[in-house]
């Protein structure tokens, strides 16, 4: 029993990172009306920016907690710019056409970015080794790795920051206005194209932050992205498009399920279970997925 609880704790810790990734995915879906299949690549890029920032500055991929954390904002800023430009220069070209074409463009982008990453960073997995003097806390008999706790807190902070940004700032209000009705937003003087690009940039930036933490607690690899995109999809389908709390709950739940499968069955089956879950969700909840229901 206590080992099961331990798995749940592990799951919640990792799940927060899934949630932060999914929140961005949901935001693009809700505001730009695109299912961004290259979302996982933004996470991957964030991981690499963080890794190479460290390597360039210190000459090695080993860091103190403070130094490792300092690379996260770099990843966020760089990938924000990448995301902004991708939306402006590329995705905007296919907006309003067939939904399939926009899917395919982002899929093409995903493949292209993987290839670029393979060329630039090689296929080796990389990891930022963060050195804690005393790596784990023990709370009530359960082991909580400090690093995972930091990543958890970071992911929650990113998600909360995005939520507050959307609620409290002028740009956040513009984003929500564009999500609800782009034409009306344009009429009241909002630059819709710019707002969409900012949305894309923000969503990518959050994923990049999550990617930086993943580089510390797990590992990064050029072809890791698609899996995170699909996980985001599962979470958003579960939690609802555009719902930040929904994505948070969905992410924590998915993390827990994966850790339970890994702990109780075998880590080899976690992905099969996750993707199986996606298909089950799509079958069980098709009405909720079609959006407005009856046509006309």
């Amino acid at each position: 029993m206590s080992s099961v609880l331990q798995f749940v704790i592990n799951g919640l810790l990792v799940g927060a990172l899934f949630a932060a990734t999914a929140v961005g995915f949901a935001l693009i879906w809700g505001v730009v009306d695109i299912i961004n299949l290259a979302h996982g690549e933004m996470l991957m890029l964030g991981g690499y920016v963080s890794y190479y920032t460290l390597v360039v500055v210190t000459g090695e991929a080993v860091a103190s907690p403070a130094l490792a954390l300092a690379t996260v904002p770099v990843a966020i800023v760089v990938v924000f710019v990448v995301g902004y430009l991708l939306q402006r220069l590329l995705v905007a070209q296919v907006l309003g056409t067939d939904a399939f074409l926009s899917l395919l463009v982002t899929f093409g982008l995903s493949i292209g970015l993987q290839q670029v990453a393979l060329k630039l960073f090689s296929a080796d997995t990389r990891r930022i080794a963060v050195e804690f003097a005393d790596p784990s806390l023990t709370v009530g008999g359960f082991v909580v790795p400090k690093l995972k706790l930091v990543a958890f807190a970071g992911a929650i902070a990113l998600t909360a920051a995005l939520f507050l940004f959307l609620q409290r700032t002028r740009t956040g209000r513009s984003i929500r206005a564009v999500a609800q009705n782009p034409e009306a937003a344009a009429l009241v003087g909002i630059d819709v194209a710019h707002t969409r690009a900012v949305t894309f940039g923000l969503a990518s930036a959050i994923a990049a932050g999550a990617g930086a933490f993943i580089a510390m607690i797990l590992a990064i690899q050029p072809q890791m992205g698609l899996i995170y995109t699909l996980k985001s999809f599962i979470i958003v389908v579960f939690g609802g498009i555009g719902s930040v709390p929904g994505a948070l709950v969905g992410g924590l739940l998915l993390g827990t399920v994966e850790e339970l499968v890994a702990g109780v069955v075998s880590s080899r089956w976690t992905l099969a279970v996750s993707f199986g879950l996606l298909i089950v969700l799509l079958i069980v909840k098709p009405d909720g997925l079609f959006g407005t229901g009856v046509r006309e």
Partner: peptide
Amino acid sequence: VLRLRGGYFAIATLGILLTLTEITRN
């Protein structure tokens, strides 16, 4: 899967492909 449309159909089919990959690996 053919009960789904658009993006949902596309991603469900991608999910099937990846599920089969994972099963075959194991």
